[in-house]
Design a protein around this nucleic acid. Sequence first.
DNA 1: AGCTCATATTTCATCGGTGAAATAAAAGAT
DNA 2: ATCTTTTATTTCACCGATGAAATATGAGCT
Lengths: 183, 183
Amino acid sequence: MSSLSKCIGMMDEGIERTMRLIPQLPAVEAKLSRLMLMVSGSLNEELEFELKPYKLNHSEFLTLMFLYSRPDSSSTPGELCEFTKQGATNMTRIGNTLVKRGLITRGGSEDDRRRVVIRITAAGKRLVLKIVPPLFPRLDAMFNGFSDTDKKNLSRLLRKLAHNLDQATEDTDTHLGTMKATK
Amino acid sequence: MSSLSKCIGMMDEGIERTMRLIPQLPAVEAKLSRLMLMVSGSLNEELEFELKPYKLNHSEFLTLMFLYSRPDSSSTPGELCEFTKQGATNMTRIGNTLVKRGLITRGGSEDDRRRVVIRITAAGKRLVLKIVPPLFPRLDAMFNGFSDTDKKNLSRLLRKLAHNLDQATEDTDTHLGTMKATK
DNA sequence: AGCTCATATTTCATCGGTGAAATAAAAGAT
DNA sequence: ATCTTTTATTTCACCGATGAAATATGAGCT
């Protein structure tokens, strides 16, 4: 496999050369967004790799962790879709496989009987406790050489980025909204 | 759609609560890595959305841009696999579709006749020039409110993260290597 | 010349996810 | 009481990518 750093080097050179062909290109920003995508791609790969022994994929793990972190150990399909950014179709499938493995249960809600309540089981919690702690050394290693201010800054900048991305998609959505309304 | 910021809020709360259940959890680092994944997920979505009108996906776009940025407008499947982190199977398929659309050509190499030389065509270059400049405003908007030092810091921190990730996977790989050698 | 290694392609089964449409059931509004 | 909306599921066709195995071809070594 080619190392991430090597890919980043190629990317840097590529953008430098592209800048000569398209001078208006905002090179700094282009590099930053490419960096984001490449680094998190690698991070994602790493996570999937760690989950493989437990036959869980990223979405299933997220779902499980979200339930684990809830005060009442439960949620609904809709809420899980929001948080994990999955479509309803996929959420149903994830639910099916996790139920089949006995990691969650699905039951009708008392108060709103359209709603389905998804709850993590004792076995699900046990699995989380088996998966998560071994991840900690990796997590620490990832941030080797990061000072406390480094971490604070990274958090701040990523959150700012998130905010800007929200703005952008909000604009797009409202435009689509007006287009539909006009039509 | 649920906004990125709202998801980040849920994530923050989730990790806080999880920390109470698993006190050794390195919460700061966990949040940072979740942030990375969430923000870049959204960034990725945005990019795919921009590319959709041109019937290109992320990998095809990367491939095209890499070729565009090369001094001689060409590369080889192997090199493209490295840079785009795609498997050979997928690279072949990407090549097929781009050739079919007249955006690249595939030909035998002169010096090493195992090698295939992939070259971006004039039409391919034209498409790049049609796609890329409209991306610039988005790119600028993404980094709204970022000072020059913010950008420098973000770049520095992402590159450091990349370096650490390389170390981690290198360790894993060499362990696997010695395991295989021992076997 | 012969052997091994490297490069690329193709085929095939599989995975994870999407999007649209149909169905069901119940909540909420008037 | 009916109508509309919300919530969830299911089905189906499809997309993009993976991984393994088979094939082909040619480079490089001895």
